[in-house]
């Protein structure tokens, strides 16, 4: 992909014939940030979690920033295209990312050779955390995760398992199988290319057990039986799901998704004043009672963790993924 932006192209084509174009570039002398609409880049198609989050949060962030927001969806290649696009934009604070930082940033680097590094992104706040949930259909005879392990120990092909390849869920599946001493290559794994189809397959009994992000299960809670949530503590949005630790299995795991707001690290370092304005606006909007209420209704998160905690969580999870990357290949 060419790194030429339109602005660069204009520079190359030179002033002569395009002199009139100068009128089109009024932002050379900068007034106080922000003095024009700010772009929110969502590296996913319309309708997904990040798209919904950005659209629901936008009115509140607009109020805090004092400028309208333009939501730009840049989907494709496991969010790689949108992330690349966001980093290519001018370093002026008019581009904010609303993305599933984890697992998409580390995975696109580790598996697809994306042209950026984890360190290129600076997290402002990652309110939404999702965890892998092993679940079965509500009509299934499986009682708990221990029974799954026992059955697979006896015959690794006895249960079919639905999972997305190259995902945090897949890593958790393999880690737990290894911890239980089951050969993962002998499992009957059915691959899905999205969380939705995988959940439907688990709820409908197409596969015996599905390993997939738990939050998406909420609307069809009645159709599934949660077996094990791959989280360290009880998850507030699904309190009745047993934790993986409860099954008696000692296994490491990675967090499913960390979604929220980010900018380029370059902005944070080179334009600290502008960055401060954005951080304060996100912080203010996240804690605005109106925003909290509006987003809660749509089952979207606003919890304010702040940049320090968010970056720490992102970094730790990314490192864990790098450690277990061989499992995903």
């Amino acid at each position: 992909m060419t790194k030429l932006t339109r602005r660069d192209a204009l520079k190359f084509t030179g002033g002569g014939i395009l002199a009139a174009g100068v009128i089109g570039m009024p932002h050379i002398a900068r007034a106080a940030y922000p003095d024009r609409p700010v772009n929110i880049v969502v590296p996913f198609a319309t309708g997904g979690y990040n798209d919904r989050l950005s659209r629901a949060f936008a009115p509140h962030l607009e109020k805090a920033l004092g400028q309208p927001l333009v939501i730009a969806n840049k989907p494709g290649a496991g969010a790689q295209l949108g992330h690349t696009y966001a980093l290519q934009q001018p370093n002026d604070g008019y581009t904010i990312l609303c993305t599933s930082a984890s697992p998409y940033i580390p995975l696109s680097i580790l598996l697809q050779g994306a042209p950026y590094k984890n360190e290129d992104f600076h997290m402002i706040n990652l309110p939404s955390r999702d965890y892998t949930l092993a679940a079965t259909s509500s009509g299934s005879s499986l009682k708990d995760f221990k029974e799954v392990i026992d059955k697979l120990k006896a015959d690794p092909g006895s249960l079919s398992i639905g999972v997305q390849p190259a995902s945090a869920d897949y890593a958790n599946l393999i880690l737990s199988m290894q911890a239980a001493g089951i050969d993962p290559t002998k499992l009957r794994i059915v691959t899905y290319d999205g969380g939705g189809p995988n959940r439907n397959a688990a709820a409908g009994g197409q596969v015996d057990v599905g390993f997939v992000g738990g939050e998406g299960f909420l609307p069809i809670k009645e159709k599934i039986k949660p077996l094990a949530m791959f989280a360290a503590e009880k998850v507030d949005w699904f309190p009745d799901a047993p934790l993986i630790g409860d099954s008696g299995l000692k296994t490491d795991f990675v967090e499913g998704s960390q979604r929220g707001w980010a900018v380029s690290t370059a902005l944070m370092k080179e334009q600290p004043d502008i960055y401060k304005v954005i951080e304060e606006a996100v912080s203010k909007a996240s804690q605005d009672p109106a925003a909290v209420e509006a987003l809660k209704k749509q089952q979207l998160s606003t919890t304010w963790y702040g940049p320090e905690a968010s970056n720490k969580a992102f970094k730790e999870n990314a490192e864990k993924m790098a450690k277990y990357i061989d499992l995903l290949k």
Binding site: R6, G21, I23, G24, I71, A72
Partner: peptide
């Protein structure tokens, strides 16, 4: 459409 469109004028 919800995408930016690079334009000159």
């Amino acid at each position: 459409m919800p995408y930016p469109m690079p334009t000159f004028f």
